[in-house]
Write a protein that binds this DNA or RNA. Structure first.
Lengths: 353, 353
DNA sequence: GGCCGCCATAAAAACGGTTGACGATAGGAT
DNA sequence: ATCCTATCGTCAACCGTTTTTATGGCGGCC
């Protein structure tokens, strides 16, 4: 054992009386270990245990080209949408003995790029991108899958056919929301659309239009406002508040309001309150996402739930599968999972009357 | 350039006509490079650039025993208290060219232990522990600083004199909160104390007692409830709600309520509402932390702000400093920073009357 | 008796860098 | 002349593994 106090494989070798190679073979149950008699194995194993040997992952990675690390790139970690996904991810990776290198891009393309390079340099075996908010084009990913690094984008779809995606069924979810309001008798509905730059925005809107058409509901353009492009997901609270105030000031009447997401909806609730309107008595409000604070607000927010933790777990699963494939020199499987959203009915919506 | 397509230092060496050693020395501006003439340097540098050489951090770490990685251990990433700290951390680490290995202990000691080992195995140069919620004794850390890994615990103090700590001044903050209520004229105040197992609980309580004494305020034990020990920080919403309902049911009268933290306070708000009481008209409510949702609730929550992002940045700074010290073979400096809390006055509190 | 397969282990060659110990040359001081 | 020191580089060892390729001995088969 060297002066550093760290036990190396050679220490185990000399302690057990075998060579380093044999120790390695035994401890890893390598193919060759099939020829090694049982008592040799136990001798080596007890020696290793006695010394408290822990293989150095750096050396191991260097040699075997496997880091047992995946990169996790987040676009904004302060987004409440992120953390449940991270939780789901982490859980699955932990089971599989992977660690995650976390990078927070702060919604800045340049930072994204730089982090991406750093992660690849570190030889991450896979990459998971939680793309909640604005993203420019993720073309940098090309460089990436070229290097045979399996990638999954969680949270939105992306037209880049080398990456897997896990996203919620925005269209269906939005339809669900509108259906809920419609079923409660609402016909005069205001909408706070998401910013155009977000693909989910268009999808949700499509779901709304589809349902409206099938239900014979007409959408009044005067009661439709669109969120500006914001860099900070938490800023949509302010935006939701202002747009709602605006609608109210313009004297538009509506009995329900459907917001792009929960934080926007909370902003709307606040605006209503300021105007002296009660939710849900005077106006029902529905959000989208079901972030943690949706359940804690007053009134608690009816919303469309994205199963974020499950999405995280699924993303991790896909990456781990792909890593296995790479291991076997097979092609990286690319999958696109779309998960159903679910209505969570709370206090902020009620039947008209 | 090998078949793998990855450029190694040897490729740069042959491309530039110098040896790998020289390339390494030049590219790292190692001490020896002071003898290398400028044009050699530029030749090597352009060769490196031409080939797109990127040193393999694994190999580098293995040799130089420096990973450029710090471990970040979180006790529960879904705690809204965590993410701003993470943001602060990440920002500082990014500047310093460090990446973070993220581990989420889920409040489970066993998981904490296992992750700790994994991180140390990976030769993290420093460790930052975000200890928001329950922690058993962190004695495992002993093993750690023994290994010369600088450690800072963010979010609470810990009686382990080898780790630095960054925490908020709980005592002062709590006094600030009570002073705020007192100044508004409140004398009948209910308290939802934190669970005893949390050290911050005791500190905040001490601040309350101190202020009460100096202001001649008597604390009615009948209006003091204590949160149970919960594993899930988000569960304190339920707890806050139930304890408040309980107090109300027991017919206790109070004009203000001070909660252990924001999520508890939100629970209290909900309980008041359910009982038909308005906040702040019938009862003022104050929280602690200033998590993101505090500003979004209705009424928005008056609270004591922990500067979490700054705490994260400070933690990172301390660790980076300590890493420098280790580099110079100096002792790891251990510091204890206590940051002042700040009153954030919003809608949920108002003068009595 | 030569060849082959089966065991049991070890030696050696990677993996991709860093680094301390030199070598060689030239100029300046002694 | 001799010694020292500064300059410019290279060699070879090393970091701690994994993995490929020996090295032998032994039994069986033609």
């Amino acid at each position: 054992m060297a002066k550093t106090g760290v036990v190396t494989i050679r220490d185990v070798a000399s302690e057990s009386g075998y060579s380093a190679s044999t120790v390695s073979i035994v401890l890893n149950s390598a193919p060759l270990s099939r020829y090694i008699p049982a008592d040799t194995k136990t001798r080596i194993e007890t020696a290793a245990k006695r010394l408290g040997y822990r293989p150095n992952p750096l050396a191991r990675s260097l040699r075997s080209q496997r880091s047992n690390i995946v990169g996790v790139m987040v676009f904004d970690i302060t987004d409440p949408f992120c953390t449940p996904i991270l939780r789901g991810l982490e859980n699955s990776l932990y089971q599989a003995n992977y660690l995650s290198l976390l990078a927070d891009a702060h919604n800045e393309p340049h930072r994204f790029e730089r982090y991406l390079e750093m992660l690849l340099d570190r030889r991450v075996e896979g990459l998971i991108i939680i793309a909640n908010w604005l993203v420019t084009d993720i073309k940098l990913l090309a460089d990436l899958t070229e290097r045979q690094v399996p990638t999954v984008v969680a949270g939105r779809e992306v037209d880049f056919d080398l990456a897997s995606t896990v996203s919620v069924d925005n269209e269906g979810g939005a339809a669900l929301a509108l259906e809920h309001l419609h079923r409660l008798g609402h016909r005069d509905i205001a909408f706070l659309r998401g910013p155009k730059a977000l693909s989910s925005s268009g999808q949700r809107w499509k779901g709304i239009r589809n349902f409206a058409q099938s239900a014979g509901l007409t959408l009044d353009p005067k009661k439709i406002a669109e969120l500006p492009e914001l860099l900070d997901p938490n800023a949509s609270f302010e935006a939701g508040m202002q747009l709602t105030s605006e609608l109210l000031r313009r004297g538009k009447s509506f009995t329900a309001l459907m917001a792009y997401d929960d934080v926007t909806a909370l902003g709307a609730l606040r605006a209503l309150k300021k105007k002296g309107l009660r939710a849900p008595e005077d106006c029902s409000v529905i959000g989208f996402d079901d972030v943690a604070q949706a359940g804690l607000s007053i009134p608690s927010l009816t919303t469309i739930r994205q199963p974020m933790e499950a999405m995280g777990a699924m993303s991790a699963g896909i990456v781990l599968e792909a890593i296995k494939a790479v291991d076997l020199k097979k092609d990286i499987p690319v999958v696109r999972r779309k998960i159903a959203a679910e209505l969570v009915s709370r206090e902020s919506t009620r039947a008209i009357g």
